[in-house]
Amino acid sequence: MTARALRRRAPEPTGSGRGWKEQTRRVSELCLLGIVATVLCLPVLTVGAVVATLSTVVAHWIDHDDLPPLRDMGAEFVRRLAPGAVASAAGGLATLVVVRQVQWLASGAVPGGSPVLVALLAAAAVLLTVVLLAVPRLAGGGTWRTAVTGGWHALLGRPAAGGAALGVTLVAGLLAVLLPGTVLLLPALLVLALHAVHRALVPGAP
């Protein structure tokens, strides 16, 4: 059989069978997306819009093996700005309250001691887990309200999904601490991991 015939019969590489150069290009797209997302989060009130847009873009990347057009990503971000600002303010306020309560309990300024401190940290962990499970539900136009509600039901129905979401987030946080330079690259990769957890462990997920 001639070499030309062998080349004609050989299947085209697709999906996970692609070469390492193509895989590197695809991961690089997410890393670049993470850098842009980090910069857009600097005003703080844009965090909600950035997370929602990032979730939509990553879901498209998973389903279509490519990023959506830049114009579509920009339009999605603009559409998410107003509701995202409300979510950002609520998240920032909740974080501030938890941090201050932890400081007061640890210093003894507020009575309760270790039992109350542990209960507060546990409640904060549950709230964070609900938000993490909500992130994939923001894709495709989902609102923060419906996403958080869905995240709560997902946690109640599949606690393992919540544990996995919290686990990948802790790994990302550890990488950010040990390798500070990776902070710029991690956002899109973390959202990708949350989508993977959601699709694998939450019933009814795409």
Rank of each mutant, 00 (worst) to 15 (best):
F77L: 15
R79L: 07
R80W: 00
A82F: 08
A82M: 10
A85C: 12
V86M: 09
V86T: 14
A87F: 02
A94D: 00
V99C: 07
R100F: 08
R100G: 10
R100L: 15
W104D: 14
A106H: 13
A106W: 10
S107I: 03
P111H: 04
S114F: 12
S114R: 13
P115K: 11
A119Y: 05
L120V: 13
L120E: 12
L120C: 09
L121E: 11
L121Y: 01
A122I: 11
A123N: 03
A125C: 10
A125R: 07
T129S: 06
V130T: 12
V131Y: 09
L132W: 04
L133P: 11
L133K: 09
P136F: 11
G141I: 10
G142P: 13
G142L: 11
A147N: 11
W152D: 02
L155K: 06
L156F: 04
P159I: 07
A160H: 08
G162N: 07
A165F: 01
A165P: 05
G173P: 03
L174T: 11
L174I: 00
L175D: 02
V177P: 00
V177I: 05
V177M: 01
L179T: 12
P180E: 03
G181Y: 08
G181M: 08
T182D: 00
L184G: 05
L184E: 02
L185E: 05
L185H: 01
L186P: 02
L186W: 01
A188C: 07
A188I: 05
A188S: 13
L189D: 06
L190R: 05
L192I: 06
V197P: 06
H198E: 11
H198N: 15
